[in-house]
């Protein structure tokens, strides 16, 4: 974890004083990485209409020019139609060629939906994917206790009636493993286009996704370079405003866009609004004491201590995701 010189902790500690200079640094490094380290001539980006892929695309336009980029929309049958609408709007604004590759048939080939639905039916025998939507989420908030969270599955019928049950471990693993086909299919398709064009795959995860393990190994975690992988979400939003990302994209609530029922990233994984998450994670990795930041965050020091314990567990238990194959 970081060991930078400690600055007084304030709510603005993550805001870039000179956003243009930060942007130039990222762009220059991205250009250098792709041309001189990866020896590729441009970039392919999966665009979802979300804030992270939008900022990544805008930075890539500055690094390579729009003519050396390809945006790929990768919807499947559970995707929100908003995703394609906003992704297209983004591509149009930045003059980037965008294509759509619908991965539903590929996922059906893997039996992604059948395998997922089989596990859901073990918990809810009445579940019928043609008239129920489903999602998984965290059952108990693990942030203020030393017990980690457990997961639940929710089904929603056509009248909006919701039922939620805690997931047994095997069913959770099956739903997660089946759903991960989605990100891995997208990665395969991005590499297809990247190899055809001799481009690099530009990954879109931000710092939280990388460090807390909110990505699929060899799925959205499979890319050649991740230009915003070191940025907090606050900084991603600051860049979005600076780069002129369409306001509708900036205003969207980040979702997982993975299950048929809509689900925010906060509900599924983070359990905290990103503004708080950013500041607490910064404090955690820079060794600020809970007592030092409690008055600024207006959170009790004992709660901050529990949150730090949870951060530590998340970082450690997701190390497997960040590990390269072991060779020696």
């Amino acid at each position: 974890m970081g060991n930078k010189t400690k600055r007084p902790f304030t709510r603005n500690i993550l805001i870039f004083d000179n956003i243009k200079s930060e942007c130039d640094k990222i762009v220059s490094k991205l250009r250098d990485d792709v041309y001189h380290r990866l020896h590729r001539t441009g970039g392919v980006i999966g665009i979802s209409g979300g804030i992270d892929s939008s900022v990544t695309l805008a930075l890539s336009v500055l690094a390579f020019g729009s003519e050396k980029l390809l945006g790929v929309m990768l919807p499947e049958k559970d995707s929100s139609s908003d995703s394609a609408k906003y992704a297209q709007k983004l591509a149009d604004k930045f003059g980037v060629k965008a294509i759509t590759e619908n991965i539903t048939a590929a996922l059906q080939g893997f039996n992604c939906y059948t395998r997922r639905d089989e596990a859901v039916k073990k918990v809810f025998p009445e579940y019928n994917p043609s008239n129920h939507k489903m999602k998984i989420g965290i059952r108990n908030s693990g942030l203020l206790t030393n017990l980690p969270p457990v997961f639940s599955v929710t089904i929603i019928d056509e009248n909006g009636n919701e039922q939620t049950k805690r997931l047994p471990v095997n069913e959770f693993r099956q739903i997660e493993a089946a759903s991960n086909f989605k990100q891995r299919c997208r990665m395969s398709m991005l590499y297809y286009h990247a190899e055809c064009l001799h481009y690099a795959v530009i990954g879109t995860p931000n710092k939280h996704e990388v460090e807390q393990g909110f990505f699929v190994k060899y799925g959205d975690g499979g890319a050649d370079v991740m230009p915003i992988g070191h940025l907090y979400k606050t900084q991603v939003y600051q860049l979005a405003n600076f780069l002129g990302i369409p306001q509708e994209i900036i205003d969207r609530t980040p979702t997982t866009d993975t299950y048929s029922a809509e689900q925010t990233q906060e509900e599924f994984f983070y359990q905290l609004p990103f503004q708080q998450m950013d500041l607490l994670w910064y404090a955690y990795e820079n060794n600020y004491l809970p007592e030092e930041i409690a008055p600024v965050m207006e959170i009790k020091a004992e709660h901050i201590k529990s949150i730090f314990t949870n951060f530590n567990r998340k970082f450690k238990t997701t190390e497997y995701l960040r590990m390269a194959p072991i060779r020696d």
Partner: peptide, 28 residues
């Protein structure tokens, strides 16, 4: 949990173990 012996998956596995071996239902 505090000492990092078990994580989320560990807790979920433990719940299944208790329910199967001690004939109980763990409530949320």
């Amino acid at each position: 949990f505090r000492d990092g012996i078990f994580d989320s998956m560990g807790l979920m596995t433990l719940i299944t173990f208790l329910e199967e071996n001690f004939q109980i239902q763990v409530q949320d």
